[in-house]
Design a binder for these strands. Structure first.
Lengths: 246, 246
DNA sequence: CGAGCTCTTGATTCTGTTCAATCTTAGTGG
DNA sequence: CCACTAAGATTGAACAGAATCAAGAGCTCG
């Protein structure tokens, strides 16, 4: 990780350049961005922001995975987003964080001081355009997830989560998801239960049930093998072709 | 309603002017908008868009209420948004609708042909800026709702919905919600169940339970009286001061 | 090797669903 | 004017799925 900062100083080498909030920027706009950007790192498990915190920056995730979640008074928590490389943290025009952000793995952020970034947005339309596009995509994802939370059974919820992780993993390797594919779950059983609105016991039971049905195979606790992708899709309850965008 | 179209031709008289996607526009920008806008009306119960439909327009809701919802293969449906006057329908850059939109009450839309509107967005930054702001607000609302769907009990879900409707109703009358306030539920028990991820029987039971506990009083099926607002808030499970943004 | 995680599995409880009957209300037509 | 109908709403009884409580297994790391 030590050499990462050096590699990244130049936006030209940035691994998320093509998907992040800056992806539409022209060279001159990038120059301005480079002046206000800086990197921050967080170890796995560390909090990045607490709900209500004053936010002095907005940021793009460069590497690693974070969760966005909300906690009720009595401790019940619901994950409301899973943030992956190129995803954006923060909201121009808002002083304080609305949700908790926690690093699940080691995370590197590309941060922009909030005020200058807001200033920049009014001048360089390409940032606002891209941010709008990303926000609309996230809104669609959030709405799809509402159907998972509100209407699916525990088994369907687990299958849906596995499929999402499988698809994201495939897209990260620039492959298509297919039969026999192998991927690692980035989340603990408890984090999965927070994502799915279940208890961790139910998550564990349903993963075992899917394994016993032959829908998935496990190598250790985290590595998943999908012998037949269509079988997994059938378990999600979604339409076979349409459905999940993510 | 016949005279409505006449009244609205001029954006200056528009009742949603201060909150809609056009709220930041300068007079010259409004002139361009006026050239591509037209009104459409739908009766209560009519579909406005089906998921997958080709969308030739985007629109603002001028009057009435619509629902945004998703239906699974087997008929389970989840409402993913409640669209009120000034809310925006459609998404620049997308050809087809991602969700079903249905008019709950009689609805009037202010429509813009999609292509010219997209064109306009690249030229007049104020539209994109406002749309970004509205989309970020909706994303926050969707995320708050995910906590309701994933973690709240049936009673808490009902209380949360009542509170949201109460607050929106108060804000529409430009009042603060308070003790003794009265409002009408715009949704049937079935629509509420779709919103809350419950069955209509459970909705009915929990409304009765809240009535028997004295948290609310009912006049007919739809009119609700809240003797003590803090009592209702306490039933939502949310933090007393913070919580719901809507 | 033992401490402390994460995870799995079992037994029991309970919340919300399902199936079914009844009530209410508004609208219709004889 | 009033029976008749149909849609929405309520209520009850039985059931099912997930939560809760509890015990123990498997790993990782000092």
């Amino acid at each position: 990780m030590g050499s990462l900062h050096l590699d990244l100083k130049d936006c030209g080498n940035c691994p998320i350049r093509h998907r992040a909030v800056c992806s539409r920027c022209e060279p001159d706009e990038l120059e301005v961005l480079e002046e206000i950007k800086y990197y921050r790192s967080y170890e796995a498990g560390q909090p990045i922001l607490w709900s209500g915190d004053h936010m002095e920056f907005v940021a793009s995730i460069v590497t690693g995975i974070s969760t966005l979640s909300q906690t009720m008074e009595d401790g019940r928590t619901q994950m409301v987003g899973l943030l992956l490389p190129s995803d954006f943290i923060g909201r121009p025009g808002r002083e304080t964080a609305a949700f908790d952000v926690v690093a699940v793995s080691d995370v590197t952020l590309c941060c922009f001081r909030r005020r200058p970034f807001e200033q920049l947005m009014t001048n360089t339309p390409h940032i606002g355009q891209r941010l709008l596009e990303m926000t609309l995509d996230e809104l669609d994802s959030a709405r799809e997830w509402m159907t998972v939370l509100g209407r699916k059974t525990a088994r369907e919820k687990i299958a849906s989560l596995l499929l999402i992780v499988a698809r994201r993993d495939a897209s990260l390797r620039k492959q298509l998801p297919g039969d026999g594919m192998v991927f690692d779950l980035p989340l603990t059983r408890e984090a999965m239960s927070d994502y799915l609105g279940l208890t961790l016991e139910t998550v564990s039971r349903q993963i075992s049930a899917l394994r016993k049905s032959g829908i998935i195979q496990l190598e250790g606790k985290r590595r998943v093998i999908v012998p037949d992708l269509q079988d997994l899709i059938a378990e999600t309850g979604d339409d076979v072709d349409g459905g999940m965008i993510i």
